[in-house]
Structure formats: C-alpha cells, structure tokens
Design a binder for these strands. Structure first.
Lengths: 348, 348
DNA sequence: TTGAAAGCGCTAACAT
DNA sequence: ATGTTAGCGCTTTCAA
C-alpha cells in the first residue's frame, strides 16, 4: 500500500506537507502542493480514510438501519439520504433488520455494530422501545441520531409520516362518498405495541385515525371492521373471510403490501373495484396508478431529505438542546376506486 | 471514549490481554477473559473497529455501488448481499450512481471513495467500460471485485441475468401464439454502448434475443419494431406514436418501468390487454401479477447470493486464477396478457 | 499464559 | 511555509 510517506519521499517534502496538500490546508504553497499531487498521481496514492478516522476521532460514516419490509419505501429513502450526506462528505454504512426474528436483539446488534464502526451518526427506524439504554449510551457518547418513520425514543430527533392523519383522510373520503361499512386492514399491532410513547399517539395510528373519522360522523364501529394483518405473509385468505363476514362496501389498505393482497382477494372472490367494493390504499406505488386506485401518498423523498438534514444539523451542532420532531402530512390522491353511493341510491 | 487501556486498567491486566479476550484468542485463560469482559461491560467498552482496521490492514467493509434506477431490483439485491456478507463478518458501505449525470466520472468517484475507505471488496454494476485503469489498479491492490447485472470488465467476476435469453423467450412465446408484428421496447442503447465486450454479446441483449427468435421463425424485422427508450423519462407519448405507426399485435416491455409506461399508453389509446394488444414484460413486480401480465422473471435473490458468495470466495482466496462469469436464466411466468391469435383466426 | 513495546497511516501541536 | 514528532486504539512479535 502506498502511504503519505512514499509520496513525501518522492516529492521530497515531509509527510505533513503531503497531509496539508490533501486537506486543502492554507499553510502550503502552490508549488509544494503541485509537487505532492504529481507524486501522488504517479504512485496512485489516496489518503487512507481509516487512518484519518482514527486520528480525527471522526469516521465520516453514518449508519443507516433499514428493514426488509417495505422495500420500495426504504430504497428511495436510502438513496435520498446517501446523496444528501455524500454532499456533506459523509458515507453510508447500511444494515438491515430482517423481519420476524427477534426484533429487539437484532436492532441492538445493529446499533452496536454501527457504534463499533465508530459511525458519527445513526439513522434508523425503531422496532421496539426496549433499546433505551443503548440509545442513552450513544447519546452520551455524542453519536448523532435520527429515527424515521416511527417514534420510539422521545429524546432523539424524529421524522415521521402522520399515518393517523392518513387513515383519517382515507376514512373521511369514503364516508363522504356514502360508505358506512368500511373495513380497515392495518398492520400487525406487534410492531406498535412496544412503541407507545406518552400520550399513546403511536399505538397503531391507522386505527386511531379511522376511529376518529368514524366517530366524527357518528358511525358505530364494529370490532370486526378493524383488522390487523401479520407482516410478510400472504393475507389473502384472512381478508376473504373477513369480507364475507362483514360485507364491507369499502376497504382501506394500510400498506401497499396489504393492498396487493386485498386486491387479489377481491378479484378471487369475484368482487370488482369499485363496483362491488371501493378501495383506498396507503403508498402511491406503481400499481396504484396503473389500477386507478385512490391513494394516501407518503412524502417519501421528503422523509429522506429531512432525516439527512436533521443528521447534518446535529453533526454541525447547529441545534437547540431539545429534539426536533417532524411529522409529515400525507396527501390523498383521488382516482377511480371509490364508488359514490349517494349517486346510486339517491340518498344525497 | 473508552479504550482497551481503560478496560485493562480496571481489569488489572495488560492491553494485549484485553485484545486477546475480544478476539477469542487461544492464549488466554478463562479467568482473565471473564475479568476483561466484566470490566468491559462495566465501562461500556466496544473494540474500535477503525483502529482494528488500521492495524490489520483489513477493514471488514465491502463497498456496494448501486444505481438509482430500478429501485425494486437493487433494494432486494442489497438486502440479500448485506445479510450474506454480515454472516461472514463484513459490513456494507453503500454508494449510488445517480442516473443522467456523467456516468463514467461518477462511477470513478464512487470507486475511489470506496478504495479510500479501504474497502476489502467492491460489488458494482458497471456503467461504462472506461474505468478500466481504475479497475486495473484496484486489482493490483488486491481489492476483490464483482460486477453484477452488466459485464464490462472481462477480468473480474460477474453475475448477470441473460437478458438476451429473456427477450428470446418472450419473443418465442409471442410467436408461438401467432404474433408476427411484435414491438420491442428496450432501454436506451447508451447504457450499453460502452459495454461491448469481445464477441459483442452485450450490446442491447434484448434486441439480440428478439432478432434471434424472429429470424428462427423466418419473420422479417421492421426497423420500427425495435425501439430504445430513454431511461427516467415518461415514454408514454413515444410509445403511443409508435403503436399507431406500426399497429403491433403484441408488445415486449424490456423493464418494469417501460412496462408501466406501455400499459398506460395502451390504456390511454383505448387498447385493452390482451384483447387489442398482447404484452410480455420483464421483471416480475407486484403490478405484473395484479394485472395478470406474462413476465420474464429475473432471479433477483440469486444474483445477490451469487455476488455475495463470489465476493466471499475472493476474500478467502478460495479461487482459481481466472474470473468466474455466471449468467442466470430468467424464467417465463405465463399469465393472461397474451392472446392466442391461432384460436381466433382459425389459422392453426 | 501474560506483558511490553513497536507500528498501522494519518493529523496537529510545536518548533523552526 | 515547512518539518519533526507524538499519538489516535488496536494487534502482534518477542521476551519472560
């Protein structure tokens, strides 16, 4: 391996001069700088970022913990974050929490791995509230942290999408079109059961938003009309059963994965959308526009930008003492998957 | 920051003993090991991977260069690779080539960044053949390398999908159903123009496979029936124009992005699939099964596993001298987007 | 089995 | 403006 010593020798300068050349230090003459660069090119020298990290006590690495569900979502977010952080001279160490294994332990492993790698900061989506002590330790060590998509630790920055609002909007939209028997398909509670922050805001936000909208219209809520589906499993049969049980006029699908299963379930039962069953789904993925489905669209790019900006601000200490919590509003993209029951029944 | 010295002091041993404890060295007694771990836990000590990297001349980091197109594809691949490499004690530094800017220079920047980070290996999708000299230098430095999805450098390991075969299968399938006027929508040649390896195998493989199948059946190929679409651009209008120009009975969409635009184009023109126009698309994404579209499915997970395995083998020097080139066969998933013209016209 | 000490490649304080 | 040198936290040779 070619080191700054080799370059120094060839350029007939000292190692500190080589170092200065590559750090755009002011205390170096153009003449020496040129000599250094010439020698460096000749030898194929690149400064060793590992050595620099050790010396500087700053790695220039940001850890990103992703999960293996919701691929599309996280692939976009990570691209945005990488690009924003690269512009500030940081690189991205990516780690995955795979679903279904021991959540808490795996998250702890990933956090510790990133800390052992001496990441200057960590951006992650909390899976549980139980790693509080690790988070606390990291905070003391001065590791910058941002949680995205879920809020588990009140003391660190967060950027989330207001899923409660999203569910509220979806429900309201359906109510306005005359639907009363609405089936909410949300994700398994177990993701949220550990993430109850004071105020209890984040215990299955979709259910909360749904209830709120229904209550505002004075529509009674049957227990069976809110369903929590296991993640990473084909939920078609469960959905079919429930449809046949409560005969909803509309379905709200809480994620694109659920929507996929729900659409297939409807099709397999011979129900057409929107003629037999109306639908509103979360996540504006490709198939939503292709199938003309009304969508609660998540501002995915913005999540990435804000998470990145939040990280940078912390690293630059441009920060108030208290954590910043950002909640992004989803938008409803209205297409042709919701039938207006008022028109048909002349109820309006 | 708590270091091995601190732990040594508290455990009343030397720093080398601490080091030995954490590397599962044989030359350490259980008794001392326990003392070390106790002290480490008490202090919250984690070995500093940066320092270890510097000393060992081995970072334990693998660089992964992704592109920002084909999100779904790469998000799956990176998850598989991360998981396989983590199991071998490596971590993943992820970088993106954004499309549309200067391909070659950006690729060079990313390669150099990874090399500066002293990545032990690099997995990437070549964008151009022009960084040969960098690749050559890395090889000499002993950086393990794997190219995936495209073969640009004959001297380094590759794992690709046989797109030519895929296009051949798609075309053959349509021919067998009586189609003769088939429009191939492929990606912009510019991606491939720099990636012509000896034998010229990789100059727009989809076109090659298409031509081969057509020629085997003795069907003449009109120039207008092969179209190369720009990436990252709404191609609907271009597609509509071409459809109206040549009135194809079937379309082959070379990627899921192209398929998305083609489906919309058909719908907007009032053509239904498969009644008016048949379709076969590449990539078995969600909307393919939802819309019941026949698909050339890429073994995405396998690409990741093989790339990871190839990397590990290189790192462990379990390798012959010559590079390994793996080509994966796509599979045709037959659904209901291809109309059988023989049945209708009684031609059979 | 354990400890002392050198050194990985870089930066920065200090000296010139 | 440039050079000398100590030291970042770890591993490893060598000696005990």
């Amino acid at each position: 391996m070619v080191t700054s010593r080799d370059v120094a020798k060839l350029a007939k300068v000292s190692v500190s001069t080589v170092s200065r050349a590559f750090r755009e230090d002011v205390y170096i003459s153009e003449e020496k700088k040129k000599k250094v660069f010439d020698a460096a090119i000749q030898l194929g020298y690149t400064p060793n970022l590992v050595a620099r990290s050790l010396k500087n006590q700053k790695s220039g690495v940001i850890g990103l913990i992703l999960t293996d569900i919701d691929n599309i979502f996280f692939s976009i977010v990570s691209r945005v974050i990488e690009s924003d952080l690269k512009r500030q001279g940081y690189r991205l160490l990516v780690t995955y929490n795979t679903y279904n294994s021991d959540n808490m332990e795996q998250e702890a492993d990933n956090l510790n791995l990133l800390s052992a790698s001496r990441a200057d900061g960590i951006i992650f989506t909390p899976k549980s509230i139980k790693n509080q002590s690790i988070i606390e330790r990291f905070r003391k060590q001065g590791i910058a942290m941002v949680q995205m998509y879920r809020l588990a630790y009140p003391d660190i920055d967060s950027v989330l999408i207001d899923d409660q609002k999203g569910a509220y909007m979806a429900t309201k939209h359906l109510l306005q079109h005359g639907h009363r028997n609405i089936l909410l398909l949300s994700i398994d509670n177990s993701i949220y059961q550990d993430i109850r922050v004071p105020g209890n805001i984040y215990s299955d936000p979709r259910s909360e938003g749904y209830k709120k909208a229904m209550q505002e219209e004075g529509v009674p809520i049957a227990d069976a009309s809110m369903m929590n589906l296991p993640v990473l499993m084909d939920a078609r049969e469960m959905i079919k059963q429930r449809i046949n049980e409560i005969k909803p006029t509309a379905i709200i699908a809480g994620t694109n994965l659920i929507a996929r299963d729900a659409i297939k379930a409807c099709k397999e039962q011979g129900f057409s959308i929107p003629n037999d069953i109306s639908m509103v789904m979360f996540d504006d993925v490709d198939f939503a526009s292709l199938l003309d489905i009304t969508t609660v669209s998540q501002p995915i790019n913005e999540i990435g930008h804000i998470a990145g900006r939040s990280m940078i601000d912390q690293l630059n200490k441009n920060r108030p003492n208290s954590p910043l919590h950002v909640s992004l509003e989803p938008i409803l993209i209205s297409r042709n998957s919701v039938r207006n029951l008022y028109h048909n029944a002349d109820k309006q």
